[in-house]
Each structure stands twice: as structure tokens, then as C-alpha cells.
Amino acid sequence: MSSFILLLGIYFGIYALLALGQNLITGKTGLLSLCQAAFMAIGAYTTAILLSRHPHLSFVYVGVWVILSGAIFGLLIGIPTLRLKGDYLAIASLGFGEIVKNVLLNADTLTGGPMGISLPIKSFDKGLFLGMVWLVVCLVLLGLIQLQRSHWGRGLEAIREDELAAQSVGLNTPLYKGAAFMIGAAISAMAGMLWALYHGSAIPQTFDSTLSIMVLCMVVLGGLGNYYGSLFGTMVIVVISELPRLLGFSAIIPAAVNQILFGIILVSLVILRQKKS
């Protein structure tokens, strides 16, 4: 039982990172991107490729590379979208997610194809790993809150409110949006690294677009732009989606039911919030 709670805590932490990254991009900056799973995959595969070739690298060193590669890929999807309006971005980012998955499945020599990559590391003590995950979550949360209070954070909000007006008061909006994407992607890449370390492998199927939608659901549930809300939203969704599986009920309740529930949450919350305001 206690090991089960630890596991839930680990999942909670990893998903929380994804939700925080999504909230920075979507909630704070107002850019609807749908490829958190792809950013996560970048982190997981960077970790897997580095460690499978050089098993003795320190985690801190790998972490630096994970953050860098996440940021680079964030910029890669960010650049075309600097010129795109909201709904185009959603599709372009979905497309980006599909490209990443296609490459993971097909570039066998680098990614191991559909089988993925196994890591030559021994499994972690759950308690220790839980501590590690939440240390990262706390650091990221602290950083994001610091950012929110800074001029940069207010600039991002101004862009969300009205991009043209933000430009007209001297904000270099492409720079701001690019930075939001880089930071959000780097955070998700860290989640990917933790995921790969915990599972001892990186497999393409994990990083499906349904994961990206689940993350969006967490952020919408907790309230767009509210970081603590994202933690709450993540907790609810993780409990809904992982509990039956971890308790071994998944044979009785098919995964589709969870997904339907996420869908209903998304639609009804958006409509309820609109009615309130």
C-alpha cells in the first residue's frame, strides 16, 4: 500500500511538471500549444540516448543536456508560431508532436524504433525518487512564481491580453513568446528525464497526443494562469486516471472511460467559467 502511494506521488510530480510548463505557455502567455508529450519525449530520449551510450554520466550533467535540448526544441516549435494566430498554433503544435513521434518510431539507429531504448541503470528506491521528483517540482514552481512577479511575467500576461498593444508599448513580443516556449519545453523535458529514469526506458507509445490533451485538461481544471491550480488539477486527473490502473481495475474500467471523462471536464469547465463571468 505504501509503495502504491509513493508511486502515485511520483506520477503526480512528473505530471505536475508537464502541467506547469503548459500553464506558462497557455495560461500565462495565451498560446494554445498541444505538444507537451513531444517535449517530454525529447527529455526522455535525450536521457536514454546519453545514458545508454555513457552509463556513468552524472545525472546533473544529463539534466543540463535535457534542459538544453528541451529549450532548443521549444524554440523550434516556437519560431514558426511567432507569426501564427492562436488556432493555427494549436494545429501546428499537434503536427509537431506527430513529427516527433514519427521520427521516434522510424529513426531506428538513434531511437531504437518502436521498441525504444532501455537504460543501463538499476531501479531507484521509490522514497528517494519521490523526494527527487518533488525537489524538482518545488524548484520549478519557485522559479515560475519568481518569473510571474518579474517584469518578464507581466510582459507575458500583457501579450496574452493583447499582443498588438503589448508591442505598441515597446515589448519585444517575439522574444517573450520564444522564451515562454523554451522555458515551458525545458520543464516538460525534465519531466521526460524523470520518467525515463524511473521506468528505466523510453518508449515512443508513452508520448502520445492523448497525453498532451490530458495535460491541457489538468491546466484548464486548475484554472488557466494559476500555478497552484495546476498542481490541484494534476492531482485530480492523476487520481482519476492512475488509480484504477494501479489498483488493478483497468481490466474492468477501460481507458476510454477516463478519456471521455477528461473530455467532459474540458467542455463543461470552459462553459461554466464563461457563464460565471
Binding site: 497557455t26 495565451g30 494554445l32 498541444l34 492562436g86 488556432d87 494549436a90 492523448t210 490533451i213 491541457l216 485538461c217 484548464v220 488557466l224 477501460p254 476510454a256 472511460v257 478519456q259 471521455i260 477528461f262 473530455g263 467532459i264 471536464i265 474540458l266 467542455v267 470552459v270 462553459i271 467559467r273 464563461q274
Partner: peptide, 23 residues
């Protein structure tokens, strides 16, 4: 509503439909 709202709602509908079909 703000631009993002109908988009998010549509994503929700999409998820509901495809999974209902699976079910």
C-alpha cells in the same frame, strides 16, 4: 468567449467522441 475557450471545448468534444466510439 475569449478565443481559447471554444478551441478547448472542441478538443474536449473530440476526445469524448473518439473514446465513445472505442467504447
Amino acid at each position: 468567449a475569449p478565443r481559447l475557450a471554444p478551441l478547448i471545448s472542441a478538443i474536449g468534444v473530440s476526445v469524448i467522441l473518439s473514446n465513445s466510439a472505442a467504447l
